[in-house]
Design a protein around this nucleic acid. Structure first.
Length: 432
RNA sequence: GGAUGGGUGGCCGAGUGGUCUAAGGCGGCAGUCUUGAAAACUGCUGAGUCCGCAAGGGCUCCGGGGGUUCGAAUCCCUCCCCAUCCGCCA
């Protein structure tokens, strides 16, 4: 969330920002409540101060009579302080709710407007393939290759679940391993994170575990939820901590399963692996000094580009428009891969996303840093980015690397783990 | 899952109702001594937040939340976490 003082002092800028992001937030109301809250807080502190004084004097009281009189005085002061506290508490609750609804400020260069204003920054190294045949979509390809079983997934868990089979599994593991190698090379510490987290942690990172719009599966009779991304566990891991400035930047790569209800995705629910309830993802996460987050954001983006250039996937880089930014993001770059089987004649589809959340997440998670020789602490900046989300990467690889006979060329960097250069439909496989 | 013992500042650790303004140690910073360093000695050394131009002062914080009391690190309830033992188990 944003700093409360900042909201009060820069109310106009905050309002403009909300407008540009298409967020309906009552900034005026928040400012009004906050300005009402402050004097009350001072009032309570003054009452506490006097009560503390009285309490201390009781220990030193001369006689029983004086003791009793001071006790009564203390009782009354505490009672008054209690009453002020209650008023304060109800204001606090409302302010907090309003504050949570206000998105992060936006980067000066982020394009302003709705989704259509998003700007294409550049293209990846791999050109969009030209086929002299009618390209198939990934569902058709994968089922013919016998590497994906959507029906099986639906059979045991419902629509949106799937089995990966045979080389599909090898591709999955190869993608994880390849992305992890690139991340480690760039200094990211590899982790496998829990796939569940406390609801408190979800809130800290900015996810809402329950409610009609939620993307989150929650576990009945517990305060746990299935995570939608390792961003949740990686951010939560450092919640409440104060890091040393010379530890920063801190780079962590987390492998996890990701679970999404896709509630409200309704009609947009795409075919095959595009919008699924569970997938595996290697996520990059970084904690930086405030002045270093823009550079780290570029670094995350360049790692994503490096990965998909190496995989031979054609993509474009999108500088996401303000209206399409998630609440915590200050700026967001997406990689959209060319998917020849998507839509009528192929379409771009999002495969990675990297956000600079500045201090917005850190404030709620209370992740700070201290600099040697300086007093006090400051909030770190947090950033996240997709190294590889397996299901969508599979779509891009299968559809771009397909050949006329329905076979698929395995990206060179994955071959050592997949164990073959080309995947062919079983019918045309030579019998062994 | 059951039993027991724990959770205190950057770290270790004392503290079982009132100078806790949290002992002591380690670490860190500054100084003295020294050609320099080390050692020794001396002093300083938490965070958040509010008021204030500042100097300074207040409030809150001893795992989280709630309670008892004029007063809680200390007593009570509850949750979380850690350790050990038992049970179960890949």
């Amino acid at each position: 969330m944003l700093d409360r003082r900042y909201i009060v002092e820069q109310a106009e800028a905050v309002k403009t920002n909300c407008q540009q992001r298409g967020v309906d937030a009552d900034v005026d109301r928040l400012v009004e409540l906050e300005l009402r809250r402050r004097p009350l807080q001072q009032q309570r502190e003054e009452l506490n101060r006097r009560a503390n004084e009285v309490s201390k004097s009781i220990g030193k009281a001369k006689d029983q009579e004086e003791r009793e009189a001071r006790k009564e005085e203390g009782r009354q002061l505490r009672e008054q302080a209690g009453a002020v506290s209650e008023e304060l508490q109800s204001l606090e609750t409302e302010i907090d709710q309003l504050q949570r609804g206000i998105p992060n400020m936006s980067h000066a260069e982020a394009p302003v407007g709705d989704e259509s204003a998003s700007r294409e920054l550049r293209l990846g190294k791999t050109p969009v393939p030209k086929f002299d045949f009618q390209p198939r979509d990934h569902v058709e390809l994968a089922e013919a290759l016998d590497i994906l079983d959507l029906e099986g997934g639906a059979h045991v868990a419902g629509h949106g679940f799937y089995f990966l089979k045979n080389e599909g599994v090898l591709l999955d593991l190869a993608l994880q391993r390849f992305a992890l190698d690139v991340a480690m090379e760039a200094g990211f510490a590899p982790t496998v994170t829990p796939d569940l987290a406390r609801n408190e942690t979800l809130h800290g990172v900015g996810y809402i575990p329950r409610g009609p719009e939620t993307q989150i599966y929650s576990i009945a009779d517990s305060d746990l939820s299935l995570i939608a991304t390792a961003e949740i566990t990686l951010g939560g891991l450092y919640a409440g901590q104060t890091l040393e400035s010379d530890q920063l930047p801190l780079r962590v790569a987390g492998i996890s399963h990701c679970f999404r209800t896709e509630a409200g995705a309704g009609g947009r629910a795409a075919r095959g692996l595009y919008r699924v309830h569970q997938f595996t993802k290697v996520e990059l996460f970084a904690f930086t000094l405030p002045e270093a987050s823009d550079a780290m954001h570029d670094e995350l983006l360049s790692i994503e580009c490096q990965i998909f250039d190496a995989l031979g996937v054609p993509y474009r880089v999108i500088d996401t428009a303000t209206g399409d930014l998630g609440g915590p993001a200050y700026r967001k770059f997406d990689l959209e891969a060319w998917m020849p089987g998507r839509g009528e004649r192929g379409e771009y589809g999002e495969i990675t996303s990297t956000s600079n959340c500045t201090d917005y997440q850190a404030r709620r998670l209370d992740i700070r840093f201290r600099t040697k020789g300086e007093k006090g602490t400051k909030l770190v900046h947090t950033l996240n980015g997709t190294a590889v989300a397996i299901s969508r990467a599979l779509i891009a690889i299968l559809e771009n690397n397909q050949q006329a006979d329905g076979s698929v060329v395995v990206p060179e960097v994955l071959r050592k783990w997949v164990g073959r250069d080309v995947l062919s439909p079983p019918e045309s496989k030579p019998r062994s």
